[in-house]
């Protein structure tokens, strides 16, 4: 698995076919965990005045239109209106980054843009700035179906992501698939086990009292399995997210989602 991931990161070696790895959940049976939430939390997500994620979205909108330095363009300086330029973008991420010849997620793309075009330092993972800008870009895809880009170069990330998803890890020897493929709909303690589709990230989690990325959520799950979480920005997380997005298509994007 690690070898496959290294190959994918380096973009070297043979290019595997762009097949979507088979999922245990057929497309017609894929469900967002929104469906299993209580009506009050569903209402909180739907209602623009009640959704706490909107605070981060406002930050993101400000950052989108603010130049990082007088001689450097704002995001809007190159891309224009986010509502048109960013529509549908998050629904097909992670994608392929030509410059590094590696898969890249939306947060990574935003930070790469800052370095390459804005002469600015990358934002820290889980910072208010990176979450805000990522949520603002992702929210332009809200309601659009998640798509699976037919890019053969993503093949190794897809297979590495699937291998990570199905691999037992941690002291408890669990895997993502053990719960989210095999036992969704059941309860782990009080918690309803969802199918595990990343439809609404970054999302507001009541447990966090804040917005968080899909990587934060995956790290929480790994800690629960008594596994050593991957570091923020690790290629394993990008591979896992690519597989999870393939596995979630064609569910609609929900950013900024609200979850318990």
């Amino acid at each position: 698995m690690l070898a496959a991931l290294a190959t994918g990161s380096a973009g070297a070696g043979e290019i595997p076919p762009a097949e979507i790895p088979p999922s245990e959940i057929p497309p017609a049976e894929r469900r967002s965990s929104f469906d299993g939430m209580s009506p009050d939390i569903q209402a909180m997500q739907r209602d623009a005045d009640a959704n706490p994620g909107l605070l981060w979205l406002q930050d993101g909108a400000d950052l989108w239109s603010t130049a990082p330095a007088p001689d450097r363009p704002a995001c809007a300086g190159c891309h224009g209106e986010a509502a048109t330029a960013m529509r549908g973008v998050a629904a097909r991420y992670p994608t392929w980054d030509e410059a590094t010849a590696a898969p890249i997620d939306l947060q990574g793309r935003i930070n790469a843009c800052r370095r390459r075009h804005q002469g600015a330092e990358p934002y820290a993972y889980e910072s208010r700035e990176l979450l805000g800008l990522t949520a603002y870009v992702a929210a332009q895809s809200a309601g659009l179906p998640i798509t699976t880009p037919a890019d053969a170069r993503l093949g190794s990330a897809r297979s590495a992501g699937r291998a990570l998803f199905t691999r037992r890890m941690g002291q408890l020897g669990l895997s993502c698939a053990a719960c989210h493929d095999g036992n969704h709909g059941r309860r782990l303690g009080a918690a309803l086990i969802p199918q595990g589709h990343p439809t609404g990230y970054p999302l507001y989690r009541l447990e966090w009292q804040g917005l968080g990325s899909v990587q934060r959520r995956l790290r929480n799950c790994m800690t629960g399995m008594r596994a050593e979480p991957f570091a923020y920005g690790a290629p394993e997380f990008v591979a896992l997210e690519r597989y999870l997005m393939d596995r979630a298509a064609p569910l609609p994007m929900e950013t900024p989602a609200v979850r318990p």
Partner: peptide, 23 residues
């Protein structure tokens, strides 16, 4: 899905606090 409570797992990435001891 039941964890093995008294064996040292051959699984990977065991958290630092949990290594080399059974559940």
């Amino acid at each position: 899905i039941m964890p093995s409570y008294y064996r040292l797992q051959e699984t990977v990435r065991i958290g630092a606090a949990w290594r080399d001891r059974p559940v």
